[in-house]
């Protein structure tokens, strides 16, 4: 055997053997646990939240260390180590409980604040909705009032027009159709043949009609019509001029000009047969249409 190699192996083995026999004793598991758990308690949240129990764990650990130092083989030494360990665990448990309770309080406070905020927000939305509802109700009431006023005005106008109708019926043909009250005047009454300046007799009738319609505030359309004799364009121009003449005359007699319009229809809307003298006479006409429904 190589003695140098033997020496290299023998020296460390000897040293380990010496250390094992005369070195530090290995503490029991209970004491090792007690130390580790105490350090965790001392260095953790327990030191801040539960210093009293940490202190008691410290004292218990010192007793256990003293017992281990002086009577390592006594069963009570293990008991004291266990007591020290449980006190360290107790300190950590109490601290954890306090931490959870603090968390509950914090969460409850946040929840309360959140509910307050949500309530305020909901109240704000409710207030906005109520304001909008109020505005809508006011608008609706205004519309209802306007509609009622309009209905009353229409009713009043219809009553006035009924009086006018009775008056006008004595001097002209009056009928009602979907356009309103229609006053028909034969062309010969108002104009000479192919002319569009009013005859004296026509003016007299229009004077009575204007008097009857004055102040009624109803829209009026004056239509001019011809028979089918002659060129179409010429008839269209003649009917337009006649309608316009009547319209201007009514305005001159006090009918508001923005209420009266004129329109020539020519020969396109006959009411009788254009092949007979009587029919053509009926087709040559002026219609004054009073339309209360167009207010």
């Amino acid at each position: 055997m190589n003695w140098n190699r033997f020496a290299v192996l023998a020296v460390p083995v000897t040293l380990v053997g010496v250390a094992a026999c005369g070195g530090e004793r290995i503490p029991p598991k209970a004491l090792a646990d007690a130390r580790a758990d105490y350090y965790q308690a001392r260095d953790g949240v327990a030191a801040r939240l539960d210093p009293t129990d940490v202190h008691e764990a410290d004292i218990a650990l010192q007793k256990a260390e003293h017992a281990w130092e002086n009577a390592p083989d006594e069963p009570s030494t293990i008991d004291m180590a266990i007591i020290a360990d449980r006190k360290a665990l107790l300190a950590r448990s109490v601290a954890n409980t306090m931490k959870s309770q603090q968390d509950v309080q914090a969460a409850s406070a946040q929840l309360e604040a959140l509910k307050t905020q949500q309530l305020a927000s909901a109240q704000g939305r409710l207030s906005s909705t109520q304001q909008a509802l109020g505005a809508t109700q006011m608008q609706l009431e205004q519309q209802q009032a306007a509609a009622a006023l309009q209905a009353q005005q229409l009713k009043d106008l219809e009553a006035k027009l009924k009086d006018a109708r009775d008056t006008i019926a004595k001097i002209a043909s009056v009928k009602d159709d979907d356009r309103g009250m229609v006053i028909t005047l034969q062309g010969e009454v108002l104009f000479k043949t192919a002319k569009f300046d009013l005859k004296a007799g026509g003016m007299a009738k229009l004077d009575q009609i204007a008097d009857a319609l004055k102040g009624k505030d109803a829209p009026i359309v004056v239509y001019g019509f011809t028979d089918s004799v002659g060129a179409h364009d010429m008839n269209m121009g003649l009917s337009q001029n006649r309608a316009q003449t009547v319209r201007d005359y009514l305005v001159s007699k006090g009918i508001p000009q923005d209420l009266v319009t004129a329109q020539g229809k020519g020969p396109d809307s006959p009411i009788a047969d254009n092949t007979s003298i009587e029919g053509r006479a009926m087709n040559r006409r002026v219609e004054i249409v009073v339309s209360p429904k167009k207010i």
Partner: peptide, 13 residues
């Protein structure tokens, strides 16, 4: 007590 407090904290969260 710790388990109960922990449950309450979790519920609060």
């Amino acid at each position: 007590k710790e388990a109960e407090a922990d449950g309450q904290a979790r519920q609060a969260q």
